[in-house]
């Protein structure tokens, strides 16, 4: 997250308005040279850093992906925070608070990474609040019982980890570095969820049923987190060519199913898929068809909690306005405005 250069990112290599054919040719030659350097760096598995020349489409694609990722982290605080005051023990409560705080941290790492591409924090938040940038659809599902907190940790964070580990080798340096930090912290998230579910599964009959119900509701949405099937994914091919993504949606989904199926057995819970079974020949678990109609419907805004999540987010931002104003006024009073704005 070398954000030093956020403001100047991309200034290199911008062709000016060409008044003559000669100038246009020169600009084209320069752009081609920049492109060649960029392509060679990606091919050699080197990292692209903020002030390097990069194709505009690469920059736009990264902003879209990192912003969506950052938004998911902070919207993702809501479904779990819903249970902080009702956690069944002080231990579980402390764990849940630490986890929700981590999610805020992950959002901040990612916003910083996005800002190195020349966008601003305000612009990103504005686009989230106005619905112009998305967050993961998984967070539009409600957390109906305490067991949902466990299911989110195990399945939702588990799917996220499967997605994020390869992103640690993403071609864009600041994003890759943010993901290294995030991945280190995610494994606690997944394990605390698994442990909470295990406690319920081994508990009373009612507790076991509650755990099973949560897994039944979260399993399919977790599989949808990997995005549409490869042949319908609009971004995958280009993102893989740029080495932003390292594996396709379907590959990662299969990897997750292979990991989760035996974990469910160890929990003493079942996954809600009659077609789920080990395929000796493929060396993978087979699983049933995913209801993509539901996926697209939730993405369009028709999920159970879309409106609630966004309005709560906007409200939190508005409610925090006086704190931001007070902090700025305090800084102004004590430093006369000379606080890091030296060249701004």
């Amino acid at each position: 997250m070398t954000a030093v250069t956020a403001g100047t990112a991309g200034s290199a290599g911008t062709a000016g308005g060409a008044g003559t054919i000669g100038a246009a040719d020169a600009a084209a030659v320069e752009a081609a040279a920049h492109e060649a350097v960029f392509d060679a760096a990606v091919a050699a598995d080197e990292r692209i850093e903020p002030r390097d020349w990069m194709p505009e489409a690469y920059r736009a694609s990264l902003v879209r992906q990192i912003a969506q990722h950052a938004h998911s982290e902070i919207i993702g605080m809501q479904p779990e925070a819903n249970w902080i005051t009702r956690a069944p023990s002080l231990r579980r409560k402390a764990i849940l608070m630490a986890k929700v705080q981590d999610e805020a941290g992950h959002g901040l790492y990612l916003y910083s990474a996005a800002e190195t591409l020349g966008t601003s924090r305000d612009e990103l938040l504005d686009k989230l609040h106005s619905g112009r940038q998305k967050y993961s659809s998984i967070f539009n599902y409600p957390t109906l019982t305490w067991a949902d907190v466990g299911a989110i940790g195990w399945l939702v964070d588990g799917a996220a980890i499967t997605n994020q580990v390869p992103l640690c080798r993403c071609s864009y340096g600041p994003y890759a570095r943010a993901m290294v930090r995030v991945c280190k912290e995610e494994s606690f998230h997944q394990r605390q969820g698994y442990e909470a579910l295990l406690a319920l599964s081994n508990g009373t009959e009612a507790q076991h049923a509650m755990a099973q119900d949560a897994v039944n509701r979260w399993w399919w949405p977790s599989l949808m987190m990997f995005g549409p099937p490869d042949d319908e994914s609009t971004h995958t091919a280009q993102a893989m060519a740029w080495k932003i993504k390292r594996h396709s949606n379907d590959e990662l989904r299969q990897r997750f199913v292979d990991i989760a199926a035996p974990q469910a057995d160890a929990l003493g819970l079942t996954l809600p898929d009659p077609d789920l079974r080990w395929n000796e020949e493929r060396g993978h678990y087979d699983f049933g068809p995913i209801d993509w109609t539901e996926f697209w419907d939730v993405l369009k805004g028709n999920g159970p909690c879309n409106d609630q999540r966004l309005s709560k987010r906007r409200q939190a931002h508005e409610d925090g306005a006086w704190v931001r104003e007070a902090a700025a006024a305090h800084a102004e009073k004590h430093t006369g405005g000379n606080n890091g704005k030296a060249q701004a």
């Binding site: 997250m1 070398t2 954000a3 030093v4 901040l108 790492y109 910083s112 800002e115 924090r121 570095r177 943010a178 930090r181 931001r324 902090a327 700025a328 305090h330 800084a331 004590h334 430093t335 606080n339 890091g340």
Partner: peptide
Amino acid sequence: GSLHAPDAEM
């Protein structure tokens, strides 16, 4: 990494 803050103490 980096972050936004109103002053050095924050």
